[in-house]
């Protein structure tokens, strides 16, 4: 009896859930049917069902290919470095913005910091080329006019790494502050006043009030980031990368693009995708577990 009254009262809320659920079933779970082509010699004309099973042959081929090893290494390397460089940036920015007393200045800075997030990587790629190019780049032209040697920001793989990381930070840091700023508004103002009365300076207040207040948000974002360690966006390495730095810029997503789309080897591309999904899941669960142990915060 209690069940029917419950349903009668809340059915509208459940009805609202139907659409998002349908979205996940159709667009997220449905396509998983196609994952089986990782175990099949996929024939475009016979379709998924008509193709022959080949067991783990495709996995063997992928794991033995040196391009896979290289792109896997690069993916992890770029992501780890990116985490080190780009993860703390929005946190620091958010705290700095939070400390700003002039509201108009704070709003203006926020808007300016958000803008790069809305610029497509293709356009950023063009800008990077104009700024960092060896022959006609802004910075190198400046260096040369000062009588210094040009710096191969884009063509030497080690310099390129720096360019890649800095560009990524520039693009994402401002936008990343949003979650932190939202969490900061939840901290009780009285704490700051009390601390001030007790004679705590700015850094003491940040250390003992602001940062603990952000602990949950930091842990959550870290877990999400770690879950994405093995996945990497396509556009950033593809656009910022070039033939001369392929040793570093060739990553799993560009490898999948090359084998799957350009060479039409759908089976191999699916193998890589499935591999990324499984490893990603392990990373998320692992990070979640660690976070639960260390901070008693977790998202699952």
């Amino acid at each position: 009896m209690r069940g029917t009254t419950y349903i009668r009262r809340y059915w509208q809320l459940y009805a609202l859930l139907v659409l998002p659920l349908a979205y996940f079933v159709i667009f997220k779970y449905g396509p998983m049917w196609g994952v089986q082509i990782a175990f099949k010699d996929f024939n475009f004309f016979q379709g998924i069902n008509g193709s022959k099973w080949i067991g783990l042959d495709a996995f063997r081929e992928v794991f033995h290919s040196q391009d896979f090893t290289k792109t896997l290494r690069n993916t992890l390397m770029l992501n780890v470095l990116d985490l080190i460089v780009s993860f703390p940036a929005p946190l620091i920015l958010a705290i700095m913005l939070f400390e700003v007393k002039f509201q108009w200045f704070k709003r203006l800075s926020q808007t300016i910091l958000y803008i790069p997030h809305f610029i497509s990587w293709v356009i950023i790629g063009g800008i990077v080329y104009q700024v960092f190019g060896t022959q006609s780049g802004l910075i190198n032209n400046l260096l040369e006019s000062l009588g210094m040697d040009a710096v191969p920001f884009l063509t030497n793989k080690h310099y390129w790494l720096g360019t890649y990381l800095v560009t990524g930070m520039w693009q994402s840091a401002g936008w990343g502050t949003i979650l932190y700023l939202a969490a900061l508004t939840g901290i009780n103002r009285d704490l700051f006043e009390a601390a001030e009365v007790d004679g705590a300076g700015r850094f003491k207040r940040i250390w003992h009030i602001t940062l603990p207040g952000l602990k949950t948000t930091i842990a959550t974002l870290l877990i999400i980031n770690l879950g994405n360690m093995i996945a990497i966006g396509f556009d950033r390495p593809f656009v910022i990368g070039n033939k001369m730095v392929m040793d570093f810029s060739d990553v799993l997503s560009t490898y999948v693009y090359r084998t799957g789309l350009e060479s039409g080897q759908y089976t191999l591309a699916t193998v890589v995708g499935l591999f990324q999904a499984v490893v990603g899941l392990v990373f998320v669960l692992g990070a979640n577990f660690a976070s639960k142990k260390l901070t008693e915060e977790s998202i699952l």
Partner: peptide, 13 residues
């Protein structure tokens, strides 16, 4: 030759 020829895949430069 052009210093940045390795970047110029579409001949734009």
């Amino acid at each position: 030759v052009s210093k940045d020829f390795g970047l110029d895949e579409d001949k734009k430069q």
